[in-house]
Design a protein around this nucleic acid. Structure first.
Lengths: 239, 239
DNA sequence: AAGTGTGAATTGATTCACAGCC
DNA sequence: GGCTGTGAATCAATTCACACTT
């Protein structure tokens, strides 16, 4: 009976399904489509024309049953006894991922990470265009990074609405992340990639994904600690 | 009967459990502990001594039922009718995460991202110490980043074994990621954080976590595309 | 009265295993 | 004979709802 007042952090396609067409693709599957697309283009580059679920799964780092279940959600694009046509499948996945259009992205916070993201070639090659770089510090405004002049925070609203930007990247310190996010959303951004180590509150209809570098290391450290204590000789009694 | 020849990419505590003590914490829970720890230290800084599951959950961006289930896996550290003692709980989670010891980390690949990681303050403050920076390019060797001289790839084995480094960060181009990973593992690294957009094959007992920046944007773009097509006027018949 | 800890119920994801097709 | 597509079975994670403690 009691549902949370706060809008969901989780990126769920389940609730977007409202009046859309019957095609419902699970979140877990969507999250793997980029890996499949990447593996397929690699096969394409090497001139491979057909792959089995086993081959593609290995290249993408999953098992073949999962791959087939995933692909079956997009449609029946394979041929029994043969496999998948690389050309055709790469096209279908690209269409599903919206790779045909190019997505303007604004990056807010041009510190170490923002700098790296601004220079990162992997975005441009996958349909993302960096529309603008924004930073609050007056010292940075005017500096040119990867051919783009860093804009002051006051320009944010104009950049988003003039450039029809719907994806924002938050690479600010934790303290300013929420207010930057609020301004992005108010200006029209509906998808946010958050690198700040705080959960962002956003209204219904806005998607947030979080990348937390320190947490990733901490998760590894947790398992590392387990390995070390379990290798410890059983003779060492704790004092 | 038939299990994959390839070792698992997935970071599962399930299989590490072998001869360890009964304390089994699910992967989903482990992945959230860093967020709880961060939220708690923030309460601590503000002088808060006690929190309810509702308050802590909100600060960490989860719901309270999930938080309580997660914490109950660590032990019964709360007081019914009262809540959790911030000081005590932050200590327990820190211990669980291995935050008491400091973990030497080697970063391989000092491009844009490697640079940013080398300068990133978030690691040092959470128990990670950057032991060395390594890059294959002779042009970079000798350059000083954040007080550390970039070492040639040939120094990798010595760095890992001399420094007892067990966590490696792969920030190389896709093409060299697997070979760098192989060398890290051969030298003694048992946890790898992979920023290269390829799945890494590692032997049993080695954990890999992957951060794929372009994929994160693609996942957002997928949902974005859904929003846009569902807002489209129904009157526009396709030709 | 307030709020934790936890069984039970539910929902979601993965894996199995095989019928059906090429 | 080989391989996809998919129901059925399994496994894991989340949510519910309330007994129990302070």
């Amino acid at each position: 009976m009691f549902t949370s007042v706060y809008s969901r952090q989780v990126t769920s396609s389940r609730e977007v399904r409202k009046g859309a067409r019957p095609r419902g693709i699970s979140d877990a599957t969507v999250a793997r489509l980029p890996a499949y697309h990447r593996a397929l283009t690699s096969f394409l580059d090497r001139g491979v024309t057909t792959v089995s679920s086993e081959e593609l799964a290995t290249a993408a780092g999953v098992n073949s049953a999962k791959l087939r279940k995933d692909l079956s959600q997009l449609g029946s694009y394979g041929t029994r006894g043969v496999g998948y046509d690389v050309d055709y499948l790469v096209f279908q996945i690209a269409r599903e991922l919206g790779l045909s259009q190019d997505w303007p992205v604004v990056i807010v916070g041009i510190g170490n990470l923002g700098h790296a993201l601004a220079n990162y070639g992997g975005f441009a090659s996958r349909g993302f265009r960096i529309a603008a770089l924004v930073d609050a510090s007056p010292g940075l405004a005017g500096e040119v990074v990867n051919g783009l002049e860093v804009q002051p925070l006051s320009a944010l609203e104009r950049i988003v609405s003039d450039g029809r930007v719907c994806i924002g990247v938050v690479a600010t310190p934790a303290g300013s992340a929420q207010s930057v996010c609020d301004r992005l959303v108010a200006a029209g951004v509906t998808s946010v990639l958050n690198f700040a180590p705080v959960p962002l509150q956003v209204p219904e209809g806005v998607d947030v994904r979080k990348v937390d570098l320190a947490s990733e290391l901490q998760i590894l450290a947790f398992h590392e600690q387990r390995k070390q204590t379990s290798h410890e000789p059983a003779t060492g009694l704790a004092g």
